[in-house]
Amino acid sequence: MFAFIFLAAQAIATAAPVVERVDETSYLLGLAVDASLNVAQGQARLAPAAKRACGARLVTLGRYRFVAEEGKNRFEQELLCLDRRHKLSLIERAAGNAALEPSRPDQQAVLATSYRYFAAKDAGRYAEAHQALSGRMKSRFPLAEWTRSARGFNAEAGAVRGRRVVEITWYKNPEGAPEPGLYVAADFSADFERAEFVCGYLMWQVQPDGTFRLAREEQNMAPKRPSGRAIAQIDRDPLRSRMGCKD
């Protein structure tokens, strides 16, 4: 019996990933896993396949999730292969009166930045994640204080099971912004081991060189009930609405 379990686990560990091309710049990677695997381990095992798929382009990991179907566990990872020389096309247009019409590479740049930030936070690389904050945010939330908050959330929510950016919205000189400029909000939804649901948004401020700095972050969580029973749909939907969750 123990030999069978060992051989089954060994087969999962050596299974080749499935690579599905979505379009010219994105792929969906799939990997059979056992229940003990975490996100960082799954992404590490997919790294060689991701590098082969992107070639000379920049490997960027997007949304991910664990899926359990018919007693089997699968890790799914979106892969974005980005142009290393891309510069946001919106920067010049935002300086004038032109409408904000982001290109696909513009949108993918936001996704890439957001998922890198999530990956650092979820893996406990707090100093790395903190570097993404704007100067104002760093002054307001110094590393030690910010780390305590992020670590506390991770401890309460448990292991992350999935992250997905659900909507991207661009703003020029938005009301209430700390200073005028070009901003972009990435609304997200996430699954954690001990949470009924998690949602929120990242508000990125576009820098003159086309990079992003985090100007604001909001993350809301509905913890699972002690009984383990899920919140009824009739109660879940209004709660998500009050928290500003988007699907």
Rank of each mutant, 00 (worst) to 15 (best):
P102I: 12
I12H: 06
T25F: 10
Y117P: 01
F188W: 01
K224H: 12
S114E: 07
P208S: 06
L29W: 01
P48A: 10
A177T: 13
V22R: 08
Q107G: 13
A222R: 08
N220V: 12
P180N: 14
Q233K: 08
T60L: 11
G55R: 08
G71K: 06
E218N: 07
F66K: 03
M221T: 14
E175T: 02
A68L: 07
A32S: 09
L133C: 10
R65S: 04
G200L: 04
P17L: 02
R74T: 09
Y183Q: 08
L31I: 04
K51C: 11
L61I: 05
L214M: 02
F188A: 00
A120H: 10
V110Y: 06
E179R: 14
M243I: 00
M1V: 15
R225H: 15
E70V: 08
A112T: 11
L61W: 07
K72N: 10
R148F: 10
T113I: 07
I91Y: 03
G135D: 14
A157W: 10
A232Q: 05
M203D: 00
G30V: 04
A32Q: 03
F2S: 14
Q107F: 08
R236I: 00
A159E: 15
Q41F: 03
P223D: 13
R21C: 09
V198A: 12
F2A: 15
G200S: 05
A32P: 03
Y201R: 01
L46A: 03
E196I: 08
D23P: 04
D187A: 00
L239S: 00
P208W: 03
E196D: 08
T113A: 12
G158K: 14
Q43I: 02
E167I: 07
Y126G: 09
Y115Q: 04
Y27S: 05
V184P: 06
Y183P: 08
L28P: 01
R104N: 07
E167Y: 06
G210Y: 06
L7Q: 15
R216P: 00
Q43M: 06
P226W: 13
V18G: 04
F197R: 05
V166N: 03
G176W: 07
A47T: 09
A9M: 14
L90M: 12
E156H: 12
L79M: 08
R236G: 00
P142M: 15
R151L: 10
R65I: 03
A157C: 12
L37A: 07
A98T: 03
G152S: 02
A215C: 06
R136P: 10
A11T: 11
M221V: 15
N97F: 00
V59I: 11
R164P: 02
C54N: 11
K87L: 14
A150K: 07
D209M: 01
K172D: 11
P208Q: 01
S139A: 15
A40F: 04
M243D: 01
V184R: 06
A56G: 11
G228F: 14
E193N: 14
G152N: 05
H130C: 09
G55V: 09
I91L: 14
V59M: 09
E92Q: 11
R216A: 08
G135W: 09
R240T: 04
T14E: 08
I168C: 08
R225N: 12
V59E: 09
C54W: 13
A35G: 13
V39Y: 00
R85H: 12
G162K: 05
D235K: 00
F2N: 15
